[in-house]
Amino acid sequence: MDCQQAVNNVIPVIHNPASVQKLLDAVRVSLGFGVRTIVVTKAVGTAAQQGIPEAFRLVLKSGVALVVLPDIKDAVELLRPDNIYFLSTRGDSMGEIKGKSLMVIQASDQPFMQSELALGRQVRVVGRDIGSTALLTLALTRVLGPCIE
């Protein structure tokens, strides 16, 4: 996959954010890698009230689409990805990314629910708990690293 295809086809999904800072950090990381679409699902609390408007402000400057949806199932239904990767410290190796792919991070302290994991594949980015933003950063580096200067 060439770089233009990659940045169009890799879609970070920030799931279940409760913290404004965690939401904005994940959005900034995604923007730094040049992705064209960022999805936020199931935002709660201050992340929903203050974080979403601030995230829109960040992405509007970049010309990136920010999609805010109630749940991961909605993202799957509307975006129709070829692959759904749940970024984690457990699971299979990510391998090569092909086609439109959602890269989902759990932006809260809760683990993914089994019903969510059933939608795609849990992939091991790194074996230690380094936080969701770091998981997203490492996963995007593997996939889009050669595309950024």
Score class of each variant (00 low, 15 high):
Leu119Ser: 09
Val40Glu: 01
Lys98Phe: 10
Glu77Ser: 14
Phe56Pro: 05
Ser115Arg: 12
Val123Ile: 05
Gly99Glu: 01
Ile72Pro: 08
Met94His: 07
Leu60Ser: 13
Glu54Trp: 09
Phe86Asn: 02
Ser93Asp: 12
Leu60Gln: 14
Gly95Arg: 01
Asp71Gly: 11
Val104Trp: 04
Arg90Thr: 15
Thr89Lys: 14
Thr41Asn: 06
Met113Glu: 15
Ser115Val: 14
Leu87Glu: 01
Arg121Thr: 14
Gln110Cys: 09
Leu78Thr: 10
Ile97Ser: 09
Glu54Phe: 11
Leu117Cys: 05
Gln49Pro: 07
Ile84Gly: 07
Val64Ala: 12
Asn83Pro: 10
Val39Asp: 02
Pro53Glu: 07
Lys61Ile: 08
Ala47Gln: 04
Lys61Arg: 14
Ala65Ile: 12
Val40Trp: 03
Asn83His: 10
Leu117Gly: 08
Val104Lys: 09
Gln106Pro: 10
Ile72Phe: 02
Thr89Met: 10
Gln106Trp: 12
Phe112Asp: 02
Thr41Asp: 02
Gln122Glu: 13
Gly51Trp: 02
Phe112Cys: 00
Arg124Asp: 00
Pro81Ile: 00
Pro70Glu: 04
Ile84Ala: 03
Ala47Thr: 04
Ala107Pro: 05
Asp71Met: 11
Ile105Thr: 08
Gly51Ala: 08
Met113Pro: 06
Glu77Gly: 08
Pro53Tyr: 03
Leu58Gln: 03
Gly95Asp: 00
Arg121Met: 12
Asn83Met: 12
Val123Met: 05
Asn83Trp: 12
Ala43Ile: 00
Gln106Lys: 15
Lys73Asp: 13
Ser93Ala: 15
Leu66Asn: 03
Ser93Asn: 11
Val104Glu: 03
Gln110Trp: 13
Ile84Arg: 03
Asn83Phe: 07
Ala107Lys: 05
Leu102Trp: 03
Leu102Asp: 01
Val44Lys: 13
Gly95Trp: 00
Val123Gln: 02
Arg121Cys: 06
Ile97Cys: 13
Leu119Thr: 03
Pro81Phe: 04
Ala43Met: 04
Gln49Ser: 14
Ile72Asn: 11
Leu78His: 08
Asp109Phe: 07
Pro111Leu: 07
Ser88Glu: 00
Ala48Phe: 10
Phe86Gly: 00
Thr46His: 11
Lys100Thr: 04
